[in-house]
Design a protein around this nucleic acid. Structure first.
Length: 269
DNA sequence: ATGGTAGAGGATCTA
């Protein structure tokens, strides 16, 4: 039996967050950490800092917005950036432009195929970014069909910018007519699950109001106004081995936190 | 009260 601890964390700028990430790796001891919103060009990625802690790194960023990465101390091979062979022609439509952004990197870490994803925000239901978000999610489903196998251990980890159901927001009435909870977004997530994925956190917890993101503004964190939008979607081959999990709210506290907390899940393969 | 804060960059844009 192999114990594998997977984690995912939207760090909201790895440059600003590196001390917090290093501190967190030291006490949380994940085997794999997926990060989103690194906001770092690949040439600026702090590979030496993570190597000193025993982690190899795969990264895909352009330095302004977005940017994803995978750290692993159990091997890191077969790295793929973006949608790879299913990538779109560049620049034809807004959806094509969004699909070309640095929002997906994939690698094999020990016995698990791992993807770090940063799903587009969507901004608002009447914004052109909203249909681009839905298109991005459809492309992710197509990419799974083209490049992955649902009968193998795989984890799609990241900031999905979707709260799967009303348990996952602090007050459903506050999210009527907004992104992150719309029927179309939740259907796009269901379409991913129907490929052969499970919401790993829900294999361990059924309670409501367990969040991974809180707005920096208006004291939302301390008032428990948040959403669960950071997810690990795992194949049954991996999900059946889940042993334990946690959203580390402590990492949202203290000095210079990200607005997201890390999600940690343990598996025994 | 359509507010509030944080990051990047160097004026606003994004979240």
């Amino acid at each position: 039996m192999i114990g594998v601890r997977l984690a995912t964390w939207n760090v909201n700028s790895l440059n600003a967050r590196l001390p917090r990430v290093e501190e967190w790796l030291a006490y949380a001891q994940p085997d794999v950490l997926c990060m989103q919103e690194t906001k770092l060009a690949d040439a600026a990625f702090p590979t030496m800092s993570f190597a000193a802690l025993g982690y190899e790194a795969a990264y895909h960023g352009d330095g302004r917005w977005n940017g994803v990465a995978i750290l692993s101390r159990i091997g890191l091979t077969d790295v793929a950036e973006g949608f790879g062979p299913t990538a779109p022609e560049v620049g034809a439509t807004l959806a094509d432009e969004v699909a070309a952004e640095r929002r997906l990197v994939t690698a094999t870490c020990g016995p698990v195929r791992v993807a770090s994803v940063y799903v587009p925000n969507g901004r608002s239901l009447d914004n052109a970014q909203y249909p681009a978000k839905l298109d991005w999610l459809a492309r992710l489903r197509d990419w799974l069909d083209a490049t992955a196998a649902p009968d193998r251990p795989m984890a799609i980890c990241g900031d999905f910018n979707i709260a799967p159901d009303d348990r996952d927001v602090y007050d459903p009435s506050k999210y009527v007519g907004t992104t992150h909870t719309s029927p179309a977004e939740r259907e796009a997530l269901t379409a991913l699950l129907s490929w052969g994925l499970q919401d790993a956190f829900r294999l361990v917890y059924s309670q409501d109001k367990l969040f991974t993101w809180w707005d920096y503004r208006a004291g939302d964190f301390h008032s428990h106004r948040g959403m669960r939008i950071d997810l690990m979607l795992v194949t049954e081959a991996l999900g059946k081995t889940v042993r334990w999990g946690l959203i580390d709210r402590n990492a949202r506290k203290g000095k210079l936190p990200s607005d997201h907390a890390p999600l940690v899940m343990d598996f025994d393969l």
